[in-house]
Simulated scan of single mutants.
Amino acid sequence: MTKADIFMNSPWLSETSSEGAVSAILLGPLEESVLSSEAEAYSKGVLWIAPPTENFSSSYPANVHCLDRSSESKKLSETIDEFLRLDYDNPPTVKVSSHIAEDDENAYAPILDLVISSIDSTLRARRTRSDTGVLRQEQVFRNLAGYLRSRIPEKWRDSAQGNLAVVVGAGPSLDVTLPLIKEGFPKPLVVAADSALRALKDAGVDPDFVVSIDPEKSHDSCTSIDHRPGIAILSTQSHSSWPQRWGENVRYLSGRVMTEDWLATKGIPKTSLLAVNNAGLAAMLVAEFLGPAAIMMVGMDLAGGGDGTDRYAENTGRSHVQVYTNACHDIPGNQTETVSTPFLSDWSETSETCARISRGRNMINLNDRGALLEGSIVIHPNQIDELREALSESLAPYEH
Rank of each mutant, 00 (worst) to 15 (best):
A203N: 12
G204M: 03
V205D: 02
D206F: 13
P207F: 07
P207Y: 08
P207V: 11
F209I: 00
F209Q: 02
V210K: 00
V210S: 00
S212T: 06
S212W: 00
I213Y: 01
I213S: 01
D214G: 15
D214T: 08
D214S: 12
P215L: 07
K217T: 11
K217Q: 12
S218E: 00
H219G: 04
H219D: 00
D220W: 15
S221A: 13
S221I: 10
S221N: 03
S221C: 09
S224T: 15
S224Y: 14
S224D: 15
I225G: 00
D226F: 10
D226Y: 10
H227N: 12
R228M: 10
G230R: 04
G230Q: 02
A232C: 08
A232T: 05
A232F: 00
A232E: 02
I233C: 13
L234F: 04
S235H: 04
S235I: 01
T236R: 07
Q237Y: 09
Q237D: 11
Q237R: 11
S238F: 07
S238E: 01
S238C: 10
H239L: 04
S240G: 08
W242R: 05
P243L: 04
P243Y: 03
P243Q: 02
P243F: 04
R245H: 15
R245P: 03
W246A: 03
W246L: 09
G247Q: 09
E248Q: 15
E248P: 15
E248Y: 15
R251F: 04
R251Q: 12
Y252H: 12
Y252R: 09
L253G: 09
L253Y: 08
